[in-house]
């Protein structure tokens, strides 16, 4: 689905990514982890096609990402950023409808003929019906991030890129958000690539983890392979204790004081 081959990215003299390679299969959920400034978001921006790669090649469905038109790409790939949506006063329903933008002609008509049903389904699924006419800037952070998710769902992508989507949420909304994405993936088989700070959430939801450090890949594998005490000590410079989750058995990271 997505092939990243020896990709590097320079911002002027600064090298943000060096020789990154990975191959992401359709339907997989990948987590990108690593310390601040390790190039996680940069990699996501490159896959999204908004930033251009400096060297190497990046292919989505066999075609170079730079060969796709903006609109063509956005019909296939959606991005959700950590700050989600700005505090604008559009009503919730209008914002979800904005997700249909890549499928609308210049008059604003939807090229698919069931856009209204799509939007109603999403509103139901995300329990946004009652908030439909409320302006976005009156909602709480958790509700707002749910609207942001609704907007990318309306975009009906095959690939979903998440950039630290749960950063500003409390644990209830963090979990709710991740479960909503997981359900969406189960129903439609979309590919998910998520930059995550929370290693414990990453371990519970992702099939594969890609570890970046100073712009280079330093680890790639299942959460069981990646989340070991040695790896975390090396990459994050902290002293962790890794235990098994008592219910699911996936690795969970506890931090120790120095």
């Amino acid at each position: 689905m997505i092939n990243v081959n020896n990709v590097s990215k320079m911002y002027g003299e600064f090298s943000a990514l060096r020789n990154v390679s990975c191959s992401i299969q359709e339907g997989e959920w990948w987590g990108i982890i690593g310390p601040n400034g390790s190039g996680k978001s940069t990699l996501l921006q490159l896959i999204s096609g908004v930033d251009k790669i400096t060297t190497g090649e990046l292919k989505i469905r066999g075609h170079h990402v730079s060969k796709y038109g903006r609109r063509e790409l956005s019909q296939m790939l959606a991005v959700l950023q950590q700050d989600g949506l700005p505090a604008i006063s559009f009503p919730v329903r209008d914002i979800i409808e904005m997700g249909r933008f890549p499928f609308q002609d210049w008059m604003g008509r939807d090229l698919g003929d069931n856009a209204d049903t799509i939007i109603e389904d999403i509103m139901n699924k995300l329990q946004l019906q009652e908030l439909g006419d409320r302006p976005l800037d009156e909602l709480s952070g958790g509700q707002r991030q749910r609207v942001a998710l609704g907007k990318v769902m309306a975009q009906e992508p095959r690939i979903l890129l998440l950039d630290e989507p749960t950063t500003f949420l409390d644990i209830y909304y963090q979990l709710q958000f991740m479960e909503l994405v997981a359900n969406w993936r189960k129903e439609t088989g979309i590919t998910v690539i998520a930059v995550l700070h929370d290693l414990n959430l990453a371990a519970q939801f992702c099939d594969k983890l890609l570890v970046l450090q100073e712009g280079e890949v330093v680890g790639l594998g299942t959460p069981d392979e990646i989340l070991t005490e040695d790896n975390i000590r090396r990459v994050y410079k902290v002293d962790p204790a890794v235990v098994q989750h008592p219910k699911s058995g996936v690795p969970q990271v506890l931090l120790s004081r120095t």
Partner: peptide, 9 residues
Amino acid sequence: RQAAHMGLH
């Protein structure tokens, strides 16, 4: 950035 992600030039 978000507008660009949604296919807007």
